[in-house]
Simulated scan of single mutants.
Amino acid sequence: MEFHKKLLEYIGQSLMTADETIAVAESVTSGCLQLAFSQIPNASLIYKGGMTAYTLPMKVKLLNVDQEEAEKCDCVSENIVETMALNVAKLYETDWSIATTGYCTPIRNSSYKIFAFFSFSYKGKIIHTGKLELHPKTQALNAQLYYTEFILGCFKTEVSKNKEVQSRLQLKINGNERIKAS
């Protein structure tokens, strides 16, 4: 399992430059994102850790997912994944977080579909949540790897947007400082 090296380097360098950290809460990707983040050069500077909470009881106990809601949707919904993202960031005290939940095999609870929800939080707020659907004949491991690669690509986009916002803010601050100094 090798992940796109340049993608991981970009994410790692961006987070290091911003002096920001990340944690991961996984279900459907079952540790693949944690493995990917551990492959980033100097990972310990940005990656604080993660967890795989694969079952409903563990999501409830470790990530404060509402049990009644989780039972209604088999732990697979936009709200569940957002709760996971927000709470793993709190737990690990990180700026960023990623969470995943979904199905890598078609079962009755998934209406025999393969799909995943993923969510990113930044500084205590959800900034992106998405859903990814795959062909029902996709092999489970291939689904998990595809989800991981796709989610990392989406995360890179969010990190890039954040970098641009931070750059504009810095320019504005520097511009205001020059005006005050005049």
Rank of each mutant, 00 (worst) to 15 (best):
G153F: 05
N109T: 04
N87V: 01
S121P: 00
M84K: 03
S160A: 11
F155H: 12
S160D: 13
C154P: 01
N109D: 10
E133R: 10
T83G: 06
W96A: 09
K125N: 09
K125Y: 06
H128S: 10
C154W: 07
C104L: 09
R108A: 06
N109H: 08
Q170E: 13
T105I: 14
T148D: 06
E82F: 02
C154H: 13
Y147A: 06
C104I: 14
E93A: 08
L171E: 15
S110T: 04
H135T: 06
N142G: 08
T148S: 05
E133W: 06
N109Y: 06
F150T: 08
F117M: 04
S121T: 01
E133Y: 09
Q170R: 13
Q144S: 12
A99P: 02
Y103H: 14
L152N: 08
R168L: 14
N142C: 07
E133G: 08
E82G: 01
E133P: 04
A140E: 12
P106V: 12
A143P: 00
A99W: 01
P106H: 08
Y112E: 13
C104D: 13
F120L: 07
K163L: 01
T138Q: 14
Q144K: 15
F150A: 07
A89T: 03
Q170M: 13
W96C: 10
E149P: 02
Y103W: 14
H128T: 05
I107A: 04
A85F: 00
F115S: 12
I107S: 05
I126S: 02
S160P: 00
I98G: 01
Y92A: 12
Q139E: 15
I127Y: 01
C104T: 15
S121M: 00
L141A: 11
K131A: 02
N162Y: 10
L169D: 10
E82W: 00
L141S: 11
G130I: 11
L145C: 08
L132D: 00
A143Y: 14
V88S: 01
L134Q: 12
F115Y: 15
Y92I: 05
N162D: 05
F120N: 04
